[in-house]
């Protein structure tokens, strides 16, 4: 194949597709795609952590939960404006990530995966048991529509556009991040830690920063989720969400910038098409995950890039 779209063309097509989708897809498909956008937001951040900095978190479902609950509680119980609640929710979750990450990321090894997994289980348990604050198993109904300066995102379609606006902004920012002093340091330490440190990269600091950023993205998605469904419930964010996020990264292409986007859209559609087979969804995600690892080790995007160019490095580096 001799022609391949350049970055600007690809992004243009993406934006056109996102804008046009509700007109052709219909209401229920638009809702599915909005969900895809939410997952993409989390996956974009997680990919920077896992795919570029080489650290694994099993707790990003919990950061989504923190964002969602903080937004839900602040708007419903304390009557905050959605925007103020969202800012507080994301900042607070970033702070929690810092407190967890700062000591753990100092040590070499896969402690982050273990600690975040434990943290996530605690968050989910607390969210379903601490009834006075979180509503327990009932959750928090009546979360208001999101609004900015009096403009209310009061339909699913408006929320779809808001979510995808955020998704595309974060997607484009990820290109900037990867192609920067910070991003090069991140990729270098992901490839070989001692070699990066020996060129002056403060490995611990970079890792903490990207962990916090990825947690902030997850919390932002969680907050949007609460306003999208007008409802928060701990079961939305259980371990299966984390498994889906990992499947998104692996299927889309870990360490590629388009991977999280492509993976998220693919996965929400798989999930949606399962319909009445939903009880098997864990199994199916597991099979997808394993199948991708075996047959598409570079993920869909990595594989396509390799076919088009002979190596995956162009898309990986943005």
């Amino acid at each position: 194949m001799s022609w391949r779209p350049n970055h600007t063309q690809s992004v243009f097509v993406l934006i056109a597709a996102v804008v046009a989708f509700p007109f052709f897809g219909g209401a229920s498909a638009t809702t599915v795609m909005a969900l895809g956008g939410l997952y993409a937001i989390v996956a974009i951040g997680l990919n920077l952590l896992v795919g570029y900095a080489g650290k694994i978190s099993f707790g990003h479902n919990a950061f989504m939960a923190l964002g969602a609950y903080a937004s839900g509680i602040l708007t419903v119980t304390y009557d905050w404006s959605p925007l103020a609640a969202m800012l507080a929710a994301t900042a607070g979750s970033g702070l929690v990530a810092f407190v967890i990450g700062a000591p753990i990321l100092r040590v070499r090894g896969h402690y982050l995966a273990m600690i975040t997994l434990a943290f996530a289980q605690i968050v989910i348990i607390v969210s379903t048991r601490w009834t006075e604050v979180t509503g327990g198993l009932t959750g928090i109904p009546g979360v208001p529509d999101f609004s900015i300066l009096g403009f209310a995102f009061d339909t699913k379609q408006k929320m779809y556009y808001l979510i995808w606006f955020v998704t595309i902004v974060l997607f484009l920012l990820s290109f900037r991040i990867v192609d920067s002093r910070f991003g090069r340091a991140l990729r270098a330490l992901g490839a070989h830690e001692a070699a990066a440190a020996s060129l002056g990269v403060d490995v611990v600091r970079c890792r903490i920063q990207i962990f916090v950023l990825s947690a902030v993205y997850a919390a932002l998605a969680g907050s949007l989720y609460a306003h999208f469904l007008n409802y928060v419930n701990g079961t939305f964010f259980d371990l299966s969400v984390m498994i889906q996020l990992m499947a998104i990264l692996v299927v889309g292409g870990i360490g590629t910038l388009w991977g999280p986007l492509v993976g998220a859209v693919l996965l929400v559609w798989v999930s949606h098409s399962l319909g009445s087979y939903a009880e098997y969804s864990q199994l199916i995600f597991g099979v997808l995950y394993g199948g991708a690892l075996l047959f598409l080790p570079r993920g869909a995007v990595g594989e396509i890039a390799a076919r088009l160019k002979g190596t995956g490095s162009r898309l990986r580096s943005g």
Binding site: L173, I177, R181, A185, G200
Partner: peptide, 28 residues
Amino acid sequence: HPFHGMTVLESVMVGCHTRGGAGMLSAM
């Protein structure tokens, strides 16, 4: 230990790390 996924030029630019100060937010 080549930096997989990076070009030769980008690899050398990693070495420029201590010459500047642009962080994560300024990259964005």
